[in-house]
Design a protein around this nucleic acid. Sequence first.
DNA 1: GGCTACCTACCTGACGGCAGGTAGACAATG
DNA 2: CATTGTCTACCTGCCGTCAGGTAGGTAGCC
Lengths: 190, 190
Amino acid sequence: MAGDTRERIMESARLTVQDLGYGGLSFRELAKDVGIKSASIHYYFPTKGDLGEAILRRYVDRYAAFLDGLLDGLPGTGADRAALMGRYTDMFRSTLLNGNRLCLAGMLSAERNELPAGICAEIVRWGAMNEGWIARVLGLGGAGDREGLRSRAAALFAAVSGAQVVAHGRNDVAVYDDIIAAYRASGLVP
Amino acid sequence: MAGDTRERIMESARLTVQDLGYGGLSFRELAKDVGIKSASIHYYFPTKGDLGEAILRRYVDRYAAFLDGLLDGLPGTGADRAALMGRYTDMFRSTLLNGNRLCLAGMLSAERNELPAGICAEIVRWGAMNEGWIARVLGLGGAGDREGLRSRAAALFAAVSGAQVVAHGRNDVAVYDDIIAAYRASGLVP
DNA sequence: GGCTACCTACCTGACGGCAGGTAGACAATG
DNA sequence: CATTGTCTACCTGCCGTCAGGTAGGTAGCC
C-alpha cells in the first residue's frame, strides 16, 4: 500500500502530540506504534521538525476544509449563527473527549519557544484560519464593520482555546462545557 | 546564605518552565545557571517532580497573596471592578513581556498528561484560586447570585488564559492586547 | 582545650536508558 | 538494472538519578 505507512506515521504522531506534546513525541515509540523501526521514519520525514510541520500543516488544511464545508449552501440568513458556533465548540470538545487531548495547534502554541520555525508559521496559519471562519459566521447576522468582526472573532477563538486548555489541565470535560455555557450567557458566543 | 541556593534553584527552574515547559527543564542546564553541579539539586529536591511541585505551589501561594493584596482596604463600591480586572489582565501580560513566557500553571496545564499527580493538584488549586478571586471582584458591583458569579468567573479566567496562550503562540503581545480589548468590548471583562 | 559525633552544603563520577539521526545492507518490485 | 521501502547496527549526546566522598561548621561531653 503506497502511502499507507506514511499515513499511519502521521496519524500516530498527531495523536501523540495532542496527548503529550511535541517534546513527548519519540521516534521509537512512534515506530513501535506503527509497526516499523524508528530508522524507517526518517525515510518519510528526514527530521522530527519535518514531521511536526507536516502533521500540523495537514491538520490546519483539514479543519479549514471541514469548517468551510459547514458554511456550504448556507442560506446566509444568520439564523444559523448559533448552530454553527455550536458545531465549532463541539469540535474542540471532541478532542477533549478523545483521551483528554488538546487541539494540535493549541498544544504546540504552548511549546512554541522550543519549536522549529516551520511549525510556528503553521500555528499562525491556524489562528488566522480560525479567526477568518468565525468572522464570517459572525457576519452572517448582517452588518457589523469588518474590523469589529475580526477583533471579536479573535477574542472568541482565544476564549474557546482557553476553555480547552483549562479543562485539559483539570482533565474534566464538564469544566469545558460550563465555560462555553458561560460564554454563551455573556453574549461572547452567539 | 542559608536557603539562598534553594531559592535560586527554584527561581531559575520557574523561569525555564515558563519558557520551555516542564519537559524543557533539565537539571544540568538548571545547575549551570545556578552555579552548582546537577547532582546537588537532589540535595534540595529529591526528584524532578518534587521540584516542579514546589515551584508551582509557591507560585500559586504568591499570586494568591498578591491578588488578595489588591483587594485589601477596598471601599467595595464596585467602582473599581474595571481597575482590578485591569490589574489582573496586566499580570498575565507581564509574563508575555518577560521573554514571551507563559503563566506557569498555564504551561503545565498543557503538559498535564505527562505530569506527576502532585503537580496536577496544584494546577487545580491555581484555577480555583483565580476563579475565587475573580468572583469576588465581580461581586463588588453588588448583587448577582453566587452561582452566576462563579460560572462567569470561570469563563473569564479561561478567556484570559486563552488569550495568553494564543499570543504566546504567535510571540506577539499586541495579539494579547487586542483580545483583551475585545473581551472588554463584549462585556465579558468589566 | 580537645575529642567525638553529627550536620549542612555541596562535590566527583558513574549508571542505565532514551533521544534524534546516520550508514549501509537487503529484499521486493518495476 | 534501478528504485522503493525497510531493515540492522551504531553513533553521539543528553536525561534523571544515585553512591559515596569531603570541607567546614556546630554541639556535647570529658
